[in-house]
Write a protein that binds this DNA or RNA. Structure first.
Lengths: 201, 201
DNA sequence: TGCCATAGTGAACGCTGTTCGTTACGTCTA
DNA sequence: TAGACGTAACGAACAGCGTTCACTATGGCA
């Protein structure tokens, strides 16, 4: 049923594989998702996958990079929203938390502890760099706009750390379920911005 | 070589297994550590392990619970240190970060994303509850001492989130290596405490 | 001395990721 | 039009995994 796929067709097949893989990862975890099961859902044998990805690790890396890109797109879109810096700040925070809870598997894939920092694909490295640069840039903008005080780089990391820490603790079930996450996030943001916004809440 | 081990001996064997398991987990990750390899280091066959732990998941859970206890002990010791609330606050933050970087594998085991929240052992649940209560209690003390402002529960989670977020981002290599972690942590703490300590830095 | 409980064995099962020789088919050439 | 070629996908196989189970061998007790 196949002779000579075009480059676009190959790219499509690879994307389709990543989509199936991500569904399996969301359900069974990265380790629980098996090449055989993914291939079966493609109507294939496991061996066929190796024509498109050199190994399961490579497939996981690619799926992870794709998740990173979706994450970065969300943040970037929020950062391009109108309004002053305060509104932009809230939009980015919202986008961050929204993504994490809308696509928990993707978020976990992105921020999972990494086993072997060394042998990551260039694709994944680039996706990670983009996300990091985005977060740092927006926080630096906030510092320059006077929302945050102190050294921009320090604050950037602290700001990111608060968002990430809250999301992770929430996902791990370590936050009091009685406290709505949104309220919590705004509390943390208020802590970090060292005071209330001039007007409005 | 064995007939009727005493309860203490069984407990010792189980602890020895956990120690070996933790070494393998630190080297190969939770999935990479194999029952056969752990058993081999004990001078055993894999099947023997099942006399002491019902499954690999049970062994991982027990190892995780043990790591939790060591973590809680560190925090608790720091919390019992002398000095005023400011010094205690710093001691706890130091203890937290110290533990994370001294035993990264244990820290990662503790705070790894959980696959199946449902079927955790009672032992693990208890260890998790103890750690959570410890962190919340100390932060509540800080609020009452005037170090932190706002609702104690909210701040407790935000405070924890900052520490955890910083540690995780640092471990994931997402923090600028040029920024010393300690400086970063103090910046974050200063952000959260809404101002400088009255005297000293 | 002989029995019994039991710590640990070793083979087996079904699963995993991965490899490799083979097959079948669309396209391009003679 | 007939055949050769490249290749997408197959299916069997391998080693290693977690786990089970029938079994052995051994030390304490009657």
């Amino acid at each position: 049923m196949a002779v000579l796929l075009t480059k676009e067709q190959v790219a499509d097949v690879r994307q389709k594989i990543r989509e199936v893989a991500e569904r399996h990862i969301a359900r069974d975890g990265p380790q629980g998702a098996s090449m055989r099961a993914i291939a079966a859902e493609m109507g294939w044998t496991a061996a066929s996958l190796y024509r498109y990805y050199a190994s399961k690790a490579a497939l996981l890396d690619a799926t992870r990079a794709a998740a990173y890109e979706r994450f970065s797109n969300c943040i970037e879109t929020a950062g391009q929203s109108g309004g002053d810096m305060w509104e932009k700040s809230r939009a980015i925070g919202d986008a961050y938390a929204d993504f994490a809870f809308r696509e928990p598997a993707a978020y976990q894939l992105i921020f999972a502890f990494e086993q072997d920092e060394a042998d990551k694909s260039a694709e994944l490295r680039a996706a990670q760099a983009r996300a990091g640069n985005l977060m740092t840039r927006y926080v630096r903008d906030m510092v320059e706009a006077g929302l945050l005080e102190g050294d921009a780089d320090h604050i950037a990391h602290a700001y990111w750390a608060v968002l990430h820490g809250l999301v992770v603790l929430q996902m791990a079930g370590k936050l009091d379920p009685a406290l709505p996450f949104d309220t919590l996030r705004h509390s943390a943001a208020r802590l970090i911005t060292r005071g209330a916004r001039p007007s409005g809440h």
